[in-house]
Design a protein around this nucleic acid. Structure first.
Length: 394
DNA sequence: TCTGGGGTCCTAGGACCC
DNA sequence: TCTGGGGTCCTAGGACCC
């Protein structure tokens, strides 16, 4: 039997990746966009106009994500560009996850269009292909949205597998295939390795994923720290992370930033932007019933240098006014007058309002209890030394 | 290739405390 | 008293991902 070497402890993990998600959602809402080169992009008249994603027909013509609108148009004058509609994508995403959860509760959202699914308990490897095919067909039939699925014994390999065939692919990646399929690839192909890590690895004489897998652990650790060890393990197909449905539930921060139409040198203009950003964040905090106790501002100068300043607050905040006051204060004490390209605010260390109210009532209870103790103490001392001898503090 | 906006996680130094 | 070691919090910056 094929796959008989799989032990009882082996898991079967799926990684599901929606294909050019935003573009596919737009195409499902407007069939006239199907089968043509199209892209989702910000305002082309401003310099923040870059492609967020594009259809496979556009990709075939050399169009890619992050390309500027201007350049895309030069390359492909007939490219149809649609402005992004995040609410539409959020709704489509919810519909996708609702379908996935009809198979199992072990669904971990990774992003708006990606999920890990642990199907060990509902069939294992023998029926993995059938389950994946069924999922893919249902998403296409019911939502008109294409996806690719990777099947493997762990998250890293599943993620790698889902990348191997797009669009509408299903790929099984077995541990014994790592050497032949993964090891020949350059390190930059590995999930978790970017330009910077690639350079460090090259400096160590490590060029392929196979080089990384067979490199000296200590050497990699010295140069890359914890991350080096992790990458070394992954290159060997080792990844013990469980699929955790709650992992992405708790958001840690809420932020907003904006690239200015032209570089700013005027304080009032910047403060206006901060006011607008604070309002945006306050609205989103309110929608999610959150408040946060760390506030951070980001300043990107025209030479692309990024600076951040942050403050920890005694109490979590959520009101636009409070967010603005903290942000503007930090900005005023910090900005050296350099031309600014981008401004941002992030509120982090967020907690839910419910939790906050609980904490507050516990705090009040403790404070109250303390007051009671103090009253008893004072009255006892009054008894002993006469009234008014003891001054009450707080 | 002249580069958006939303995030997460990691590192490293300094303050502070025991 | 010139001096240890461990732990945690805060801040700034960087890498990476979608």
């Amino acid at each position: 039997m094929v796959g008989a070497t799989v032990t009882s402890s082996a898991k079967v993990i799926l990684h599901l990746d929606m294909n050019s998600f935003f573009a596919s959602v737009e195409q499902s809402h407007d069939p006239s966009l199907k089968g043509i080169p199209m892209a989702v992009a910000g305002n082309p008249k401003e310099r923040r106009g870059i492609l967020v994603t594009c259809s496979y027909e556009a990709r075939a013509l050399g169009i890619y994500t992050t390309m500027t609108v201007g350049e895309a148009r030069r390359l492909c004058p007939e490219l149809v560009i649609v402005p992004p509609d995040f609410e539409k994508y959020r709704n489509a995403s919810n519909a996708v996850f609702t379908i996935l959860r009809t198979y199992t509760d072990l669904v971990e959202p990774v992003s708006i269009d990606e999920a890990y699914i642990d199907i060990t308990a509902i069939g294992g490897l023998t029926s993995a292909w059938g389950i994946a095919t069924d999922m893919q067909q249902r998403l296409l039939r019911e939502l008109d949205l294409p996806c690719s699925i990777g099947i493997a014994p762990n998250k890293f390999l599943a993620k790698t597998a889902s990348d191997m065939k797009k669009p509408m692919g299903i790929t099984i990646l077995r541990k014994r295939q790592i050497e032949s399929l993964l090891w020949p690839l350059p390190v930059i192909e590995m999930h978790g390795i970017g330009k910077s890590t690639e350079e460090k690895l090259h400096a160590l004489g490590i060029h392929t994923i196979g080089d990384l897998a067979n490199a000296d652990e200590l050497k990699v650790k010295t140069s890359l720290g914890k991350n080096g060890l992790r990458l070394h393990h992954r290159a060997n197909g080792v990844d013990h992370r469980p699929v955790d449905p709650e992992a992405a539930e708790e958001r840690k921060s809420v932020g907003s930033s904006t690239t200015l139409p032209i570089d700013a040198t005027d304080l009032m203009e910047c403060l206006d932007k901060f006011k607008w950003l604070a309002q945006k964040i306050a609205t989103r905090l309110d929608q999610n019933q959150l408040a946060g106790s760390v506030i951070m501002i980001q300043i990107r100068t025209s030479d692309w240098r990024n600076q951040t300043r942050s403050r920890s607050l005694l109490n979590p905040i959520y009101k636009a006014e409070d967010i603005y006051n903290e942000a503007s204060e930090m900005f005023k004490t910090h900005w050296d007058g350099e031309p600014i390209r981008l401004l941002g605010i992030t509120v982090s260390n967020v907690v839910s309002m419910n939790e906050l109210h609980e904490q507050l009532s516990i705090y009040n209870y403790e404070k109250h209890a303390k007051d009671e103790q103090m009253n008893v103490l004072v009255s006892k001392l009054d008894e002993k030394f006469g009234p008014g001898t003891i001054k009450r503090g707080n």
